[in-house]
Design a protein around this nucleic acid. Structure first.
Lengths: 158, 158
DNA sequence: TTGAATAGTTCATAATCTGAAGTATATTTC
DNA sequence: GAAATATACTTCAGATTATGAACTATTCAA
C-alpha cells in the first residue's frame, strides 16, 4: 500500500522523519477532536487538559506556547460556559488563577480519557512502544518548556 | 525548575504524556518556522517539504490531512512565486502533478536542513534518542496515512 | 512616593481554513 | 456509444482563529 511513501521517507534524515510523524499525528488528533466535542473549541480542550491543577494565566500562556490575549479569550469562553472560575492569586493580586469547576473536572476527565483513546487508535502503537514514545515525548516537552518559559513565570506553576 | 511540571506529568497516562509532547513540539516548531522564512507561509513550507517528488494534489491533500481547496490555494501561491509548476498527469488528465522548479528544489533543501536543526534544538534529544523517536514517528505516520488516505488516491503517490 | 515592571484585558485587524457549488475529464452503465 | 455518474481540482464567500498594540490594575524597587 504505502510502501512507496515509507521507502522514500527512509531516505530522509531522522529529524525530518520525526517531524513528519509529529505533524501527521498532530493533524490527525486535531481532526479527531472535531468528532467528539461539539461545544468546545480545540483551544478550549487544550486548556482544560492543561488544567490538572489551578494555574495562572501567564503560566498557561507559556505552557501552551501562545500569547496572553489568546488565553484571555479561551478562559472567557470556558468561564461563561461554567467550566472554570477566575480567582485572584493571593500571592499576587495582579494575577488570576484558573480553577476548574466540578463540571470542568468532569469534562477534563472525559477529554483525557477520550484523547488517550484517540492517540491509541491514531498511532497504532502497542503499549511498550507507547511507553517509549511517551518517555521521549516527555523529555522533549521538558526541554521545550525549560527553554521557552521566561524565568519569572516558573515559580507559580504548582 | 520545571520539576513540578514533570512530576505531575508523570501521573498522567503515557498517551496523554505523548500527546502533550507532540503538541509542545508542534507548537514550538511552528513558532520557530516564523523566524527563518519570511516569504513562505507555514502551509507553503509543509507542502515544499512533502514534494520530494512530483505529486498529485489529491495525494497531497490526503498526505497533509487537509481539503483540496487548501491545496489549491497553497499551490497557487507557490506557483506564482516560481517554486513549482502544474503539469497534467498523463495518466489522468483531470489531475495535476505539482513539480518543483529548480528554485523550489533549492528552497526545499534549505527547509529540510533548517527543519532538521530546529528539531534538534527544540527536542534536545541526542542522536540515538532521535533515531528511536524517528522510528516510532515513522510507524505512527504510516498508520495514520494508511488509515486516512482514501483507497483511490494511493496508487499515484510515487 | 514615584517610576518601572508585570499580569491580564480589549479590540481591531489579519491570516487561515473550509465547504458548497462549478468546470473538466474519466468511468460505468445500459 | 450516449447518458449518467464519479472523480480531480477550482472558485469564492463566509466563518473561525490568532495576534499584537494600547490599556488598567497591581507589585516591586529606589
Amino acid at each position: 500500500m504505502s510502501d512507496d511513501i515509507s521507502a522514500r521517507l527512509g531516505r530522509l534524515s531522522p529529524e525530518i522523519q520525526a517531524m513528519m510523524g509529529v505533524y501527521a499525528l498532530y493533524w490527525k488528533l486535531e481532526e479527531s477532536f472535531d468528532s467528539i466535542e461539539t461545544d468546545l473549541s480545540h483551544q478550549e480542550c487544550h486548556m482544560l487538559i492543561k488544567l490538572d491543577a489551578p494555574k495562572r494565566m501567564g503560566v498557561l500562556a507559556a505552557d501552551m506556547l501562545t500569547v496572553p490575549s489568546t488565553i484571555t479569550a479561551t478562559a472567557d469562553a470556558l468561564e461563561q460556559t461554567g467550566y472554570l472560575t477566575r480567582q485572584r492569586d493571593p500571592e499576587d493580586r495582579r494575577a488570576w488563577l484558573l480553577v476548574l469547576t466540578e463540571q470542568g473536572e468532569e469534562a477534563r476527565n472525559m477529554l483525557v480519557t477520550t484523547a488517550g483513546e484517540l492517540f491509541r487508535s491514531a498511532s497504532g502503537l502497542n503499549s511498550d512502544e507507547t511507553a517509549e514514545f511517551a518517555r521521549l515525548a516527555r523529555k522533549i516537552r521538558d526541554n521545550i518548556v525549560k527553554t521557552g518559559i521566561p524565568e519569572g513565570l516558573k515559580k507559580c506553576d504548582s
